[in-house]
Computed example of a mutant assay.
Amino acid sequence: VYHYAEPDKGELYQPFEVLPIATASFSDKVVIFADGNPKQIPVTVKAHADNLEGEIQLCHSEGWRVDDETKPFSISNKGDEQTIFFSLTPPEKEDESYMSPIVKINGKEITQELVTIAYDHIPTQKVLLPSEAKVVRLNIQKVGEHIGYIKGAGDEVPKSLEQIGYIVHIIDPNDISAGGLAKYDAIVLGIRAYNVVEELKFKQQFLFDYVKEGGNLIIQYNTAGRWNEQFENIAPYPLTLSRDRVTDENSEVQILASEHPVMNFPNRISLADFEGWEQERGLYFPSEWSKEFTPILSMKDSGEAAKKGSLLVAPYGKGNYIYTGLSFFRELPVGVSGAYKLFANMLSLGQNVDNNQTQVKR
């Protein structure tokens, strides 16, 4: 054990480590392919000894193709890293599988990555885990390109949307002004945005005006009872949040509005799209809403009453207001295909097929 001291932390201990001579890791643990085009896959090799030379192979499932199965690497110093890029092409049909690297040095094969766990309140720990990443081929359609995103308490939804081809613009709430939002095909508020972004209480009317003039506004879940009085009306119509949630990710889902555009355009959504969800269905669903809202789905945990507030859609002026407590912030980063298709439909609501463009609307 290595024992040392730092002025601000006192005595510290670093355990003796037994590591392979190299490890390899992916920067992205999930890679989404929205079409048949190849993507560059970076694999980082880290040396745990000096003067390493070898090869790295990218293993993948049948139907996936790489430009070169094996590529060389050379690292001079212990602790240094080298990133090697593979061009990975997906199959034509939808598919979910995993890829993994094999580091080959002097006849040895290494398939592990090194994960460092470092927090001030516990000793630093290093763990060797199998190195792998999920790859998902989606046959997904979308309308619109430019999405405005107002961050909430923190999530990976913007990065997930970029993986399927959207151009995501992070909006500073301080910059929201009259007419300034019209250039976006849709605007999304991150999880708990109304709970944590104080400035939104001054900008709510601008968001409603955006919808009224033809915009598409998507509000992800907020925590009931934790906002100021200014946010009692977070929707253009009466809407009451609750603590309703569905914790069983495999719970039965019923489609209440099968003919609604959000379930049909540009992707037809079926019950199969609710398979493979992780951790939960959703949380903090509204319990009451006005007649202007259409409840799209019904779901429940075992032994409980059905919850119909997970996805609510209401027309407002020329546009649409959507409130959802579905856990997209969990499902998109782990590559759940059905969640991607449903979110793409939400972003496309009210738009036409001629709306795809390469520049922000002026």
Rank of each mutant, 00 (worst) to 15 (best):
K308L: 01
R330P: 06
K134L: 04
T116K: 14
I269E: 03
P20A: 09
A24F: 12
T70L: 12
K308A: 01
P236F: 13
S76N: 15
D209N: 15
R281C: 09
H48W: 06
I170T: 07
S287A: 12
P130I: 01
G276W: 04
I140D: 04
T358E: 12
E69K: 14
I187R: 04
N216C: 15
I219L: 08
E55W: 06
L207W: 11
K291P: 02
F33R: 08
N37A: 07
P266T: 01
S76L: 13
H121L: 10
Y194W: 06
G350P: 04
G165E: 08
L347M: 14
L342E: 08
G36L: 10
T324W: 03
E69A: 14
E53F: 07
N352S: 15
I32N: 10
P266A: 01
S131R: 08
V188I: 07
N174K: 10
G144L: 07
L161W: 05
E199C: 11
A133W: 11
P261H: 02
G303S: 05
N174A: 11
Y2K: 08
L181A: 09
D248A: 14
M299E: 09
A224W: 09
C59F: 09
P7H: 07
E96F: 05
S100W: 01
D248H: 12
D8M: 04
S310C: 13
D68Q: 15
A178N: 15
D301P: 03
F329R: 09
R245W: 15
P101A: 03
T240L: 02
E278Y: 03
G154M: 06
K151Q: 11
R362L: 12
Q254E: 13
T294G: 14
N216T: 15
T240Y: 02
V45G: 03
E113A: 07
K307Q: 12
V360A: 13
A118R: 09
V115E: 04
G180E: 12
S251H: 00
Q40A: 03
N174W: 02
G319P: 10
T23D: 09
I32A: 07
I255W: 04
A182G: 04
S337R: 09
P123K: 05
P236L: 07
F274H: 06
P101T: 04
F16Q: 01
D67Y: 08
S287Y: 05
I147F: 05
I150M: 02
A235G: 07
L297Q: 01
Y194E: 07
E92H: 03
G10R: 09
I122M: 10
I122P: 04
G107V: 12
S270Q: 04
E278P: 00
K126W: 01
R192S: 12
E252W: 07
N250R: 10
S302Y: 00
K104Q: 10
L217S: 12
F208C: 06
Q351W: 10
V66C: 11
D50Q: 04
V197I: 15
D301H: 01
M263I: 00
E259V: 01
L19G: 05
W289N: 08
G325Q: 03
A5D: 01
W277Q: 07
V360F: 10
E198Y: 07
